[in-house]
Design a protein around this nucleic acid. Structure first.
Length: 978
RNA sequence: GCCGCGAUGGCGGAACUGGUAGACGCGCGGGACUCAAAAUCCCGUGAUGGCAACAUUGUGAGGGUUCAAGUCCCUCUCGCGGCACCA
């Protein structure tokens, strides 16, 4: 029994004192950057799983150093996040303190394992000198137009009081606490990762990841090719009278109104366009009088106003006796300053510029405002329809010639004749589309629903919105839905098909609407059966009365596609759609934009300031200037999450209130913080230059070290963390801050260490094993070796303390080896040694540590058999063992008189002639069954072997009569076929 | 439901490109040393039959290809992981 405690501490101190593992920037040696996922320093201390990954890469790092590489093997702390914050709240302490304590524990525990980290490069995501650069990089996203704020239905965890990204909702429940998740509308910072979807997919071809990891990335991005198809809602406008109020712009008069009239008259409407008098200096009373004299309003009236025409309408409409059918205001001039900068006293006098949308909406069955979503003057909470960026084109660009550009007009027209855009991967089945379905959240639902169906549809939509994702996605998959009363036209054959609302269609994918082809889609088939909708077969090969058929076949009932194979038919149909303006080829991704806001305290503050009077183009958001970074997290006593879902930071008024960096006026800080994923998306860059305060890392150093040669981590991070960090790196690459577009040249993953009962180690089950105890009782080398020996690195393995004792016995045998040192050794020992060096070296490169350990055990067994080996052989073995059990290897080497560290020795070279056997055991089979074994030279000629085999009594017994064939595989076996 | 991976002694696991299945370790049985124990060392250890040599059988189940299958092909069962009405 050797004394592991003193040996462990002695060598750990020496390594650290002499900086043996410090990586050198710009060395002449070839670089090797190996990376483990840095730990989250939780309060429960190091988990048994951590040493597995860290030791594995430590072995590789140590071997690479001995092979002459300049190795970077760094460590740090991913320390922002909920568990610490929750623990701090519970114990009434500050997250800063708790974090520091946890890190100290983790550091001590990791150091007790003798991992060859370069501790001089330690990073900590919660350190202001680190998150300064996280914030800086966020601003790079912002400047690139990749960060935007959007109101959206988010997943809200009721118990954590936190918004969760889709990725953090597992089976409809919160990933962290397992609690209930509901939908809530919240303004969130989003990052447009979807813009990088294709590159994130394509560049997987350039990296070496485990196939299953690549596949998970691909599946998550979820690319599918297909077509976008437009279905026009069949709208009958006969009996309606459209009243256009024209003011102010001549080009509208010449182009817009005639075009609109033609479109609407084709649908049976009559159109009246009134030229309002004196539009640029209007007298509103005069205009109203003119309208009243020229036109009689009734309930079939549809009012369309354009720009300044809205002013008169706004005053007039609330005074009418009868309500009108519909009012559409296109870009009403809701904010005079934004109009064109010109003062218009006449307008100002007649109107206070605060449109009373409420009064108008009472006079119209439907009321639509088409205006800029971001215009603060447009009341967002009012039930008006908001379109994007319309005002910019239609009003402000007054001086520009010809606003009639074909981009905005369809939006206007679609208010009266809506069209439904769908995404399909099967355009070849368009002739089989017998109905359509909108997601309950689809904005067109309320537009197209007919009056007699409105109540029913509204009730259905309301019920759907209450359902959680579990109810919608899980369970019976029984189809529910409601008919809107509206019909759309199938562009392929002109057929009228009913439009339904059903929750089996998701707003989040594609366009939120589908064409349903029940004959060839399982879900559509089930829905059609449930609601008795027609099923039309358009691909032959199945029996669509019994079930949907999604296989190969030839098109039928499909006019010009008939007789074509699926792939061919898809192409033809896309060509047809494009030619006739009904759609086009498109690609869709499952990947969603990244919800980047958290309403919690313990995270990086988002470094933006909101000013009411500056930067309207970004919604008033202004980056904190670089020289004011980092925006430090204020240390406060109260940081509990709020019930209303606002960030705790919003309550700290003297932090929130600040100055606008642009105009120096009063402004407010953004109070949301960043998600945990932020700091971990780029930490590998900081390791390269951890103390730089001019940049997150020096470009020259990045060029030297990047990319990472091997990155190892858990399978649980192979989707999100890997994707986010690849994306983050690509954005930095595009902005010229990093030299490579893919950060990880090779990615591997380790299996979990399970508890002795084969389940996950967990606090609640009390089945955890404490690394401290194991190190204390058995030593660091035992723990390291056991975790390598326990099974294949990438597969989960149950902990077994008894099994670990076997590796300790092995190390005890190692400690006794010096007693056997002698001036000569048996040939078998020499051969075993060289074989061991060869196999261990190869196994390390292939990350097959378990068989490397087994080989070293075999070697010891051979030595023990002969009880003698030379000092040189023992040293050579110590060099081979050192990556696995560095403490004892160094100790034994030192006791043999070696100076310096084993880590500074050269990795041993094996002698090729020593790894081949002089004599091998050859299997002799008869009819494939083993009958004897022969000791022969590996390259013995067939004749000789055959003679020896036939001479064998047992073989001869079975080889009676004619031998049909003799198969001889040199060095392996001989088979007699009789 | 779909996709991926896996299933080998009492246990964790080996087995290159189809060529002696069970390396290595744990456990178990026997023995040596010891007054005794611990530690250490030696022998044995898939199952069945046999004193033994050896024979039969054996890698989740069933079928196939091959001189030869844990390994390749088909069908199925179970387990693990991922996705989950993704149009």
């Amino acid at each position: 029994m050797y004394n592991h405690s003193s040996i462990d501490k002695k060598w750990q101190k020496r390594w650290e004192d002499e900086g043996v593992f410090h990586a050198e920037d710009f060395s002449d040696k070839e670089k090797f950057y190996c990376l483990i996922e840095f730990p989250y320093p939780s309060g429960s201390g190091l988990h048994m799983g951590h040493p597995r990954s860290y030791t594995a890469l430590d072995i590789l790092a140590r071997k690479k150093r001995m092979e002459g590489f300049n190795v970077l093997y760094p460590i740090g702390w991913d320390a922002f996040g909920l568990p610490t914050e929750n623990y701090a709240i519970k114990t009434g302490r500050k997250p800063q303190e708790v974090t520091k304590e946890n890190i100290d524990t983790f550091r001590r525990q990791l150091q007790s394992l003798g991992i060859s980290f370069d501790w001089s490069r330690e990073v900590n995501t919660t350190d202001p000198s680190y998150y300064k650069w996280t914030q800086w990089q966020f601003l790079e996203f912002f400047k690139e137009g990749l960060a935007y704020k959007d109101k959206m239905a988010i997943n809200w965890c009721v118990s954590c009081k936190i918004g969760l990204s889709n990725e953090e909702v597992v089976g409809g429940a919160c990933e962290r606490c397992g609690g209930e998740v509901e939908k809530r509308d919240k303004e969130q910072w989003m990052i447009a990762i979807t813009k990088y979807a294709q590159r994130l997919l394509d560049d997987l071809d350039t990296v070496d990841y485990l196939p299953k990891i690549k596949k998970q990335q691909q599946d998550w991005i979820g690319r599918s090719e297909g077509a976008e198809v437009d279905f026009t809602v069949d709208t009958d406008l006969s009996g309606y009278n459209i009243l256009g109020l024209h003011a102010f712009r001549d080009d509208s008069k010449e182009a817009f109104w005639p075009w609109l009239s033609a479109e609407l008259e084709g649908r049976g409407a009559s159109v009246t366009v009134l030229d309002l008098p004196n539009p640029s200096e209007p007298n509103i009373e005069e205009q109203i009088k003119f309208i009243k004299e020229s036109y009689t309003f009734n309930e079939k009236t549809i009012v369309i106003t354009h720009s300044l025409g809205g002013v008169a309408a706004m005053k007039l409409l609330p005074t009418l006796d009868t309500p009108v059918s519909h009012v559409i205001m296109v870009a009403p001039p809701v904010n005079v300053e934004l109009l064109d900068g010109k003062e218009r006293p006449a307008l100002r006098d007649c109107c206070d510029w605060k449109f009373d949308f409420g009064a108008i909406s009472k006079m119209a069955k439907r009321f639509t405002v088409l205006a800029d979503k971001n215009d603060p003057a447009v009341p967002q909470d009012h039930p008006v329809q908001i379109a994007n960026n319309l005002r910019g084109e239609l009003v402000v660009a007054e001086a520009e010639v010809g606003h009639f550009n074909g981009k905005e007009e369809p939006v206007i027209l679609s208010q009266l004749i809506p069209s439904i855009e769908v995404f399909t991967t099967r355009p070849d089945t368009l002739f089989g589309a017998t109905y359509m379905v909108l997601a309950p959240e689809h904005p067109l639902v309320s537009t197209i629903v007919t009056d007699d169906k409105r109540a029913e549809v509204e009730a259905y939509v309301k019920a759907a919105s209450k359902k959680s994702d579990i109810d919608r996605g899980d369970g019976t998959k029984e189809k529910t839905g409601a008919f809107t009363g509206a019909y759309a036209v199938n562009p392929a054959n002109g057929a009228q098909i009913p439009v339904w609302v059903a929750d089996y269609v998701m707003m989040g994918y594609g366009t939120g609407a589908i064409m349903a082809v029940p004959a060839h889609d399982e879900r559509d088939w089930a829905f059609a059966k449930a609601f008795d909708l027609p099923i039309v077969e358009v691909v032959s090969g199945g029996s669509v009365d019994a079930e949907a058929y999604a296989g190969e076949g030839l098109s039928v009932n499909s006019d010009f596609l008939d007789g074509k194979k699926v792939d061919e038919a898809k192409e033809e149909m896309i060509a047809w759609l494009e030619k006739n303006g009904h759609g086009k080829k498109t690609v869709n991704y499952k990947l969603r934009d990244w919800v980047f806001s958290r309403q919690r305290y313990w995270g990086e503050p988002i470094p933006l300031i909101h000013c009411d009077s500056c930067s309207p183009e970004t919604g008033g958001w202004i980056p904190v200037p670089e020289d004011q970074l980092p925006v430090e997290l204020p240390e406060v006593d109260q940081y509990q999450p709020t019930d209303d879902g606002e960030s705790p930071l919003s309550a700290i008024t003297d932090w929130v209130n600040t100055e606008c960096p642009t105009c120096n006026g009063p402004a407010k800080r953004e109070t949301d913080t960043m998600p945990n994923w932020a700091g971990s998306s780029w930490y590998f860059l900081r390791y390269i230059d951890p103390h730089n305060d001019e940049a997150f890392a020096d470009m020259k150093k990045l060029e030297y070290w990047m990319p990472i040669d091997l990155y190892n981590g858990g399978m649980e991070h192979t989707v999100l963390h890997l994707l986010y960090s690849r994306f983050w790196n690509k954005v930095m690459f595009d902005r010229g801050h990093v030299p490579v577009s893919e950060p990880y040249a090779r990615r591997h993953s380790h299996g979990l260490i399970l508890a002795e009962d084969g389940t996950k180690m967990s606090k609640s089950k009390g089945n955890g094993i404490d690394p401290d105890e194991v190190v204390d009782k058995y030593g660091a080398d035992t723990l390291r070796m056991y975790e390598m020996f326990v099974g294949p690195f990438e597969e989960p393995a149950p902990w077994n303390t008894k099994g670990m004792i076997g590796t300790r016995r092995f190390l005890d045998k190692v400690a006794r080896l010096p007693d056997m040192v002698s001036i000569s050794e048996d040939k078998e020992v020499t051969k075993a040694l060289h074989k061991t060096v060869k196999k261990v070296g190869e196994d390390i490169e292939n990350l097959r540590f378990n068989t490397a350990v087994a080989q070293m055990m075999t070697f010891i067994n051979v030595v023990n058999k002969h009880k003698a080996l030379t000092k040189e052989s023992l040293l050579m073995f110590m060099y081979t063992l050192c990556p696995f059990a560095p403490h004892i290897a160094n100790e034994v080497a030192e006791n043999l008189g070696a100076t310096g560290f084993v880590e500074q020795q050269k990795w041993p070279a094996y002698d090729e002639s020593q790894v081949v056997d002089d004599v091998i055991t050859l299997a002799v089979q008869v009819n494939g069954k083993l009958r004897a074994t022969l000791e022969v030279a590996p390259d013995a000629p067939q004749q000789e072997v055959e003679a020896a085999a036939r001479a064998n009594e047992n073989v001869a017994k079975f080889v009676e009569g004619e031998v049909k064939k003799v198969i001889y595989v040199k060095g392996r076996m001989m088979n007699f076929v009789v």
